[in-house]
Nucleic acid binder design. Structure first.
Lengths: 140, 140
DNA sequence: CTCTTCTGCTTTTGTAAATTGCATGCCGAA
DNA sequence: TTCGGCATGCAATTTACAAAAGCAGAAGAG
């Protein structure tokens, strides 16, 4: 079980945008370079974020991406699920039919609890919280 | 991020052994067939469980596997970590060197919290708890 | 001895993640 | 109105790892 790079890059990208402040428009190339991630990969991720209105895209010269929402109101869960789709630690939770043979499967029981507690964490912290934490680290 | 089949099969296998009671010795073929999982794959998983003393192996005719510990004292975390090694949702947590460029990486911050809350769940429930839950489901 | 079962190692297969490439469309600026 | 920079969308590739299969060997019971 591992956090994917797409999720990681996406969160980092949104944070970078938020840090520039004032809803500035930043070209993707700058975001990618600043975070040291492949631009084309980030492009795909940002398309998902655009669909979820977390960022806004601007074409043409001087184009790029700006924040679509107030970072205080965007939770980590929203960003992650915009990128990966709904969270499923195990297939049979998203698709109960595949688990129909084991209506009493104890693995599902514990995975459901684990998933819930994971989502609680992701829901508890906003992009603004993550930036705040980063500032604290820099200060200390 | 997904729970792996190895983890799932391992937990199911241990539960099956525990359900037979009295530390009976069960050949791997029976465990595999009862859970509908490939025997060779399960074999590798059980080797790890053996090293962690969660199960005990017995060779020769009438050989197989028996429980190595009281199911009341084996947590889901122990089983899972015996199979997969220490839990790392993200690479830079297990290997901080790979993250040295970003000492303030906010992703690490939230992933560490997520990981901790995940492990708390896995630590809270024992094999006996899972079996108990299964019985409840059957009863209702 | 010999048959059965685990053991250890190697190899293959399958699938999803991660990345790259390219043709296209849009937009602002000159 | 044209040009260049930038996003878009889809296709293709590469990489990585999970999942599974294979096989020779060791250990134990009868």
């Amino acid at each position: 079980m591992q956090f994917t790079k797409a999720e990681e890059y996406g969160v980092l990208g949104v944070i970078y945008l938020a840090e520039q402040g004032d809803n500035r428009i930043i070209p993707l190339s700058e975001v990618a370079e600043s975070q040291g991630v492949p631009e084309k990969f980030l492009a795909k991720i940002f398309q998902n974020l655009t669909k979820a209105s977390i960022v806004r895209s601007h074409r043409g010269i001087k184009g790029g991406f700006s924040l679509g929402k107030n970072p205080v109101k965007v939770t980590a869960r929203e960003v992650i699920e915009a990128i990966q789709g709904p969270y499923n630690l195990i297939r049979c939770i998203g698709d109960p039919a595949s688990c129909v043979k084991h209506p009493t499967c104890p693995v599902r029981f514990i995975i459901e609890l684990a998933e819930r507690s994971l989502l609680e964490v992701f829901e508890k912290y906003t992009i603004a919280d993550l930036i705040g934490w980063k500032q604290e680290q820099l200060a200390s």
